[in-house]
Amino acid sequence: MQTSRLYQWSINIIMLIFTIFCVFPFVLLVSASFTDDLEIVRTGYKLIPNQFSTAAYQYLWNNSADIFRSYGITIFITFVGTLAGMLMTTMVAYPLSRKELPFRNFLAFYVFFTLLFNGGLVPTYLLYTNFFDFKNTILALIIPGLLVNGFFIILMRTFFATSIPTAVIESAYIDGAKEWRVFYGIVLPLSLPVLATVGLFYAILYWNDWFNGLIYITDKNYFSIQNLLNRILLDLQFLQSNTQQVGKGAELVAKLPLDAMRMAMAVIGIIPLICAYPFFQKYFVKGLTIGAVKG
């Protein structure tokens, strides 16, 4: 494909501007985490801290036992959850992409329906705690609501259906390949960008999830890193705005960490994902497209 130098320049500049637009608040976040707490109260968030301080990180370091354990939990559930989720998602998305599949429409509807309707929190909770005994287990962070995502299935199905020509699959059949072999020998290698995309999305989903922890976990040994952070953020908000009901609300906030620490926790919650991103990006490669196979 020919592209002029001017075009390259202009798209780079546009992307650069947009990237800065995205990164700027994040810089603010990092810088706030390195600011002296009281300085934030005094002057607000600054791009460059007036008074540089690592107190927030030191505090986190002092509580590193909790933080590291939570990191361990988060990494474990992200890893296991993403793998299991991907496996099940690809296995259902591929058949759905095949027009000749019996009950295809029904199955597609069955998947889609889960995106709109759910029984709500209470029945789901009762099911997972009464029947499966998931309360305060690591499985509660992996399975309920997260493991297979209808949205990702539909996304992947669409990719399979559009980017893998039926002809390729047909010719494989003529060569005598079995379904299973077609799936992992031909379809999967052809779909690396999609797999990377959905894999990344699963990883983000698991990494950022705090809701399951909020509902199913009361034992701090199973808190994920996002649980720790969200608990602080939401508690602060709740206590401040419910002083009349709770009675003690406004005085209990004294026990909660200050701004810089909340920011520091947000930062350490994001960094590992950023580091993992290039791993997924590796598969966003051109060249492994149909053309190559066909040729």
Binding site: F18, T19, C22, V23, P25, F26, L29, I204, W207, N208, Q226, L229, N230, L233, L234, Q237, R262, M263, A266, I270, L273, I274, Y277, P278, Q281
Partner: peptide
């Protein structure tokens, strides 16, 4: 990678 950053930040933050 960078344009994905905002997606990772919690709405409270």
């Amino acid at each position: 990678s960078l344009i994905l950053l905002p997606y990772l930040i919690s709405m409270v933050i």
